[in-house]
Design a protein around this nucleic acid. Structure first.
Lengths: 145, 145
DNA sequence: AATCTACATTATAATAATTCTAAACTGTTG
DNA sequence: CAACAGTTTAGAATTATTATAATGTAGATT
């Protein structure tokens, strides 16, 4: 769909210099049909699979945070040892599969809007996130220990 | 309220040896009117303030996880660099103050139950958590930069 | 096109949270 | 009270992330 030159233009619009590392990361992150979730580690793997040259880990962190600050990535809250990011930056909720550690988007229609009747005085709401933790439902399959 | 001997008895019931470290941690965590939130760091500080002897960091981690596994502590999801725990293990939601990094219980009546209309097939729901991120609402107070 | 400069990248070190390890210690059981 | 399994401990190891400081480069200026 979008070609490199588009990313170059887009980066410039955002006030980010279109370095080859950033353009590459745009391709990996945004040049696809569907949005997806990833950890920094996932992303490093994806990049190295699609590339002969390597992008430094520090650059991956820097660029992910730059894209996040510009609103093109969203960090997702999971109590875990690592951060998850989402290329879907719209307001939506998640299932988290505790078996596979996979993060899955909730369809907008699958969870009714959360009704917050009372907020904390003097504070404004920045975001409302629902995290539904799920696990395989194998009643038959007993664990050995 | 509950005295040491009660904690000793309680620990034994749970199949946890009532070592002096565990009893001490019970006092710090559960011997109070209100439930509260803490990080491991907070807890270590609380313990050292109330004690002449120290409890090893590894033991604090071990014991917190033991209590969590037994269902007397709950880990709370916040995208952050550290884990938050809650001595309130009932189903309830949270406000997270992004200014102060404070975690505040939602009153049960302040958020309507979350209605999940469609789950993932073959999976059972372990938990549903709402996290409402808030920030001070000072329209008047402009930021310099 | 050569030069300049602020912004970027990089390898590496540093930090922080957490887990692992293996030795020493201690409730509990017989 | 002896024995053993479960615990604690200090410190090392691991993992995720951020900081540092030298080098590289995009884009403006000459």
């Amino acid at each position: 769909m979008a070609k490199n030159c588009n990313f170059i233009e887009k980066l410039r619009e955002l006030g980010l210099r279109p370095t080859k590392q950033r353009v590459k990361m745009c391709e990996v992150l945004f040049n696809r049909e569907k949005t997806f979730h990833f950890t920094i580690n996932d992303l490093v793997k994806m990049i190295s699979e699609e590339m002969n040259e390597k992008i430094s880990l520090a650059t991956v962190y820097n660029t992910v945070h730059a894209f996040e600050k510009k609103g093109y990535l969203k960090e997702i809250s999971i109590n875990s040892d690592k951060s998850y990011f989402d290329t879907n930056t719209s307001v939506h909720h998640h299932f988290y599969d505790e078996d596979t550690h996979e993060l899955i988007d909730c369809d907008e229609n699958d969870i009714d809007p959360v009704n917050i009747k009372k907020n904390i005085t003097g504070k404004k709401i920045n975001s409302v996130e629902v995290l539904v933790k799920v696990e395989s439902d194998n009643q038959n399959q007993k664990k050995f220990n």
